Amino acid sequence: MAGRIYSIDSMRIIAMAFIVSIHTDLLRGVGEYGTPINFVIDSSARFAVPFFFVTAGYFFALKTTRRDPIAYFAERAVSIASLYAFGLVLTVPVFLAGSVVREGADRREIPGLIARRTAEFVSPIDLLYYGNSVSEILWFLPALIFSLGLICLISKANMTELLLPIAFGFHGIGLLGASYTMFVDIPFEVRDALFFGFFYSSLGYYIYSADWQPDADRSTLYLGATVLFGALHIAERYVLGYALTGETITQSVYTASYTIATVLVTISLFAFLLSRPNLGKSTPLPSWGNYAVGIYIAHPSVLFVLERAGEALTEMGYEIENTLLWHLVLTPGTFFGALLVYIAVRKLRAIEKGKARLSNVKPVRDRYSK
């Protein structure tokens, strides 16, 4: 497909809003129906991270059609790694300060507490591969690097016809370890590149490489399939989380992230977006899509601050954390707060052209201080 795909650009910011709603636990614990509504929102939002992986794989295939995949991968890996590093730079100080405040450390205890927390943050495999040593939210970025790296290796080995079967095999193990634990016990972490990101990135890579262009005349069919599979996804998660466990939806929250139906929702949604490439062109959404990655890397620290503020108010006697007003503030506050942080970062030129450039901050600061 030639030209800009406005529908995918538009969906980026929508998917990012859904990701924020997952992390803020929108309406969980609010009244009698808050938790069931949260379950529906959470289940509906689970397409978002797979969508970003599929999109990354699709455009990786597009960009490497006429260029060396290793050279392009190296370029992308540096860019993604710089964003991950910048996300850590934003998050670590906030988390450390929160630990000091939460544990009520006095002045003499602060250095030791910071040293212990920092040691936890720099666990090599958690920091560099799983991406969850500081905040579990940031796991997507290292997973994307390794996912594209695996695609690159298989592509260079001229084994692209085996790419999707290999990736699906690993993802099947990942699903067993994440959502279908009643069948087998997988004794290791599966929300990572190999068992999750690799499959969805390979799916996007395959869609472009196979030159599949969904017909615009079938866009209604693809949209209907997305809605149908979305309903199936909610039903599947309900069965796994409640019907098979005896838990009640009003008292507990099912937290497993992805299921078989997630794949179906993601494929049908992506097909719909490709069938309507100009969808959203006349709206601000495609431009807002450029802010999605910035909101992603900034929102863990913003969410942490807002949650600690909610805890502080509760300790002061204002029971707000399970109120409708608090939830209506927390989710948009996190989204737009992260957006403002990212806009400020761009003004400082700390992020340019999708890459973090911390060396740019000092000259700009010096210029404004004169």
Rank of each mutant, 00 (worst) to 15 (best):
A2R: 09
I5T: 06
I13R: 08
I14S: 02
A15N: 08
I22Y: 00
H23L: 01
D25E: 15
R28L: 14
Y33T: 09
P36T: 12
N38C: 12
V40T: 14
S43A: 15
S44E: 03
P50E: 08
V54F: 04
R67Q: 14
D68V: 09
A81G: 05
S82T: 12
S82M: 05
L83A: 05
A85C: 10
G87P: 03
V89H: 02
L90S: 07
R102Y: 07
D106P: 00
I125D: 00
D126M: 03
L128Q: 04
V134A: 06
V134G: 01
P142D: 10
L148H: 02
L150T: 03
S155Y: 05
A157K: 06
N158Y: 04
L164F: 03
G172Y: 04
G174R: 04
G174P: 05
G174M: 11
F183Q: 06
V184T: 08
I186W: 01
L194Y: 10
Y200E: 06
Y200G: 02
S202F: 01
L203M: 13
G204P: 00
Y205E: 09
Y208G: 00
S209E: 07
W212L: 15
Q213T: 06
D215M: 03
D215V: 07
L221A: 08
Y222I: 05
L223S: 10
G224W: 11
G224A: 13
A225L: 15
E236Y: 04
R237K: 15
Y238I: 11
G241T: 11
A243V: 15
I249H: 05
T255S: 14
S257R: 15
S257E: 13
T259V: 15
I260V: 14
A261H: 09
I267H: 12
S268F: 11
A271V: 06
F272I: 10
S275Y: 02
R276M: 06
P277L: 03
K281W: 03
L285K: 10
P286I: 09
Y291W: 08
I297V: 11
V305H: 11
V305Q: 12
L306I: 14
E307R: 13
R308K: 12
T331Y: 00
L339I: 01
A344K: 10
A350N: 01
K353T: 07
K353N: 13
G354R: 06
A356E: 04
A356V: 05
K362D: 09
K362M: 13
P363M: 11
